[in-house]
Structures are given as structure tokens and as C-alpha cells.
């Protein structure tokens, strides 16, 4: 991915850029809001990562300027402000996702990929397929190797989300936000139980396994093992 990071904390930016490079992404870095705005105007990025508190031009104003210029590049907002109101303000200003500092790098990476994917995948597509697993949205039917799998409504939504983000790491927080539509810290492994139930239904009687646990990050639905 081709990314723009607008972050004034130089040390944080440095390690973030290293991590993103290692994950195979290209990153441009801007230290101030105006510099970020100029870079964003000049070239085309897949996702913008914008810190909220920036010198010269704050993150939300930068974002608002871009949106006014009909720039629809997906934006991930980083913020040290964690209250619900701030998240709402960030998303209202045109942000596509919101991540509160301190965050896990895996979480950031998963969300970046999620945002890029959202751009590419047609959301209204009715039929999703990963290997021999098929999700037919219109008929509310899931089959694997031609056999129908009975799923609860919530399991359907969970599977749909995972399939839309196939071959991509999805974190627990992303699942809670997108499948259950809640933003809170569930303390326990409440999501894991739902995943293992889903896994029991789609993977137990079939091979190869499709729903993988990614250590320290979350889950990935896909054919590849790693």
C-alpha cells in the first residue's frame, strides 16, 4: 500500500514507518498539518494516517479540507483523546476509522488493510467465496464443498465480515465494532468464543482449515497458513 503518515511525534513516526515498511508498505511522512495537506494533494495514496493533534493545522481540519476538495481517500485518525465524543467528532469530520493511542501495531495494520479493502470490494456484492466456502447473501445460505452450513444470524454477519476481509488480519476490536456495532473494551475473550463456534461449523468437518488465529493480532479467513 502507498501510505501517508501525518504525525508530529517524530519517534513514534519513525518506528511506525519501520513497521509499515517491514509489512511491505510505502510510507510518506509529514510532520505538520500543512505539509500533510500538501502531500495529500500532490499524490495519490491508498490510505492516509492522520494524527489529531498536529502543529499548524490540526488533523480534523486537514481532513475537512481534503473532503471539501472531494478527496475520498480512506483516512485512519490516530488520537490520544479516547472519549466517545472524540471518536464521533473524528468520524463526523470524514474519518473512516479511528484508533486511540496507545494502539497495538497489529491493530493499526489490520485497520489499514481493512480500509484499503473497503475501497476495492464492492460492498453490495451478493456472493462471496473463499476457497470452497460460499456465502450467498440473498438466500442467506452458507455452503462449504456444496454442503449447507446452518448459521445463527450473528454468525452470518461475522462470517460475512471475515469473508469481505479475506486473507487479511481482522482484530477483535474490529469485529466488535463492525459485527456487533459496539465500541467498548470487552475485558474477556468474548469474541474468541464466537470465532471458535464459527470455526467449529465451517472448519471442523472440512479441510483445509480456513479460519486462522493470528497470534497477538486477531483472526484471518483465507487459504494460506501463515
Amino acid at each position: 500500500m502507498n501510505l501517508l503518515l501525518v504525525e508530529d511525534d517524530f519517534d513514534a513516526a519513525k518506528s511506525l514507518i519501520r513497521g509499515l515498511h517491514r509489512s511491505g508498505h510505502e510510507v510518506d511522512h509529514a510532520g505538520t498539518g500543512t505539509e500533510g495537506l500538501n502531500l495529500a494533494r500532490r499524490s495519490q495514496y491508498d490510505v492516509l494516517i492522520i494524527d489529531r493533534m498536529l502543529p499548524e493545522l490540526d488533523g480534523l481540519s486537514l481532513l475537512a479540507s481534503l473532503r471539501e476538495e472531494n478527496d475520498a481517500t480512506p483516512v485512519l485518525i490516530l488520537s490520544a483523546l479516547g472519549e466517545v465524543d472524540d471518536r464521533v467528532a473524528g468520524l463526523r469530520a470524514g474519518g473512516d476509522d479511528y484508533l486511540i493511542k496507545p494502539y497495538a501495531f497489529a491493530e493499526l495494520l489490520a485497520r489499514l488493510e481493512g480500509l484499503e479493502r473497503r475501497q476495492r470490494v464492492e460492498p453490495a456484492v451478493a456472493r462471496l467465496q473463499v476457497a470452497d466456502l460460499v456465502f450467498d447473501r440473498d438466500r442467506h445460505r452458507v455452503t462449504r464443498q456444496g454442503q449447507t452450513i446452518r448459521l445463527q444470524p450473528r454468525e452470518m454477519r461475522l462470517l460475512e465480515y471475515l469473508m469481505r476481509h479475506a486473507e487479511q488480519v481482522v482484530t477483535r476490536a474490529m469485529l466488535l465494532e463492525n459485527v456487533w456495532d459496539y465500541h467498548f473494551d470487552p475485558q474477556t475473550n468474548v469474541i474468541d468464543v464466537h470465532i471458535s463456534r464459527l470455526r467449529a461449523k465451517i472448519d471442523r468437518d472440512f479441510s483445509p482449515p480456513l479460519l486462522h488465529t493470528v497470534r497477538g493480532a486477531g483472526y484471518r479467513l483465507g487459504v494460506s497458513e501463515d
Partner: peptide
């Protein structure tokens, strides 16, 4: 909570959502 951030919350929906979320854990 600031007044403008108060909304009308469907408590019935919220309770059933969360029960559904935790039900699996309880059964496990």
C-alpha cells in the same frame, strides 16, 4: 455526560445484543 451527547438508547436492543455477545461465553 454533556447533554448533547445523550441520545435515546433502545435499552431492550442493547441488553439483547450484549446477552447474545456473552451467551456463547457463558455456555462455554
Amino acid at each position: 455526560i454533556r447533554r448533547e451527547n445523550l441520545t435515546s438508547v433502545d435499552l431492550s436492543q442493547l441488553v439483547s445484543d450484549l446477552v447474545e455477545l456473552y451467551e456463547a461465553l457463558a455456555e462455554e
